[in-house]
Amino acid sequence: MENNVEPEYAIVTNDLSIHYGSYTAVKGVNVKVEKQKITAIIGPSGCGKSTLLRSFNRMNDFVPNCRVTGELLLQGQNLYSKDVDPVEARRRIGMVFQKPNPFPKSIYENIAWGARINGFKGNMDELVEQSLRGAALWEEVKDLLQKSAYELSGGQQQRLCIARTIAIQPEIILMDEPASALDPISTLRIEELMQELKKNYTIIIVTHNMQQAARASDYTAMMMIDDQRSGGVIEFDDTKKIFTRPKDKRTEDYVTGRFG
């Protein structure tokens, strides 16, 4: 879908760096994340993928002595400027974690709670159904809505977490290795789901699975650590290009499995 109009960006970073105390975990990231696309972040373990992803919705506010420098612009506004409320930011930028973490409540409450605390006034039953359908879980759980979410399988729990995130209707959904603990079938379902979700949301996903990145994403950011153990984005491009004609030798080694 090539066109000439400048694409709209959900997130633009300007020399974004993230520090844990005196250690710089992520250094000098400049990326533009396009709206309603899936952007994958790949790279070896410990290169700062989770750190970078958490900085996108200020989840690292909870990490002691974590500091962010540079700019992270959402529609032109810096997420880290003083007048941005982190709670509001997290409501606009949802997150799905690596390990499924449903609330120890009923399936229904798992979805309703986030909506309720954000002041949702509409029909809750409808919202729950719509979110569960959106996460491709409705058919499996429609008769068990009052059951504890802990009775679901790992894959179902992860989809419930996705449903919980889309229930608050964020603009961007961040996913940190959402399928790493799942079997291939559940993984595929989540990938299909992402294709569905991208019609309405911007998705950023961290993954260790090269096929998944190649299959499911539109853009790919390749991260790697430098000699000071600081991670950085060494290449950011169309997924096709990254996997077929990468510019950087390290990217080529990594995506073809010759890394390390």
């Binding site: 989840m59 709670v87 997150m95």
Partner: peptide
């Protein structure tokens, strides 16, 4: 109370107080 539960609450836009009152204390 595991941190993943706090993160889940913050992740859907809860304030610290909502996280404590609805999740940390009941658990």
């Amino acid at each position: 109370v595991p941190d993943s539960l706090r993160q889940a609450a913050y992740g859907v836009g809860a304030t610290r107080w909502q996280t404590i009152w609805h999740h940390v204390l009941p658990n």
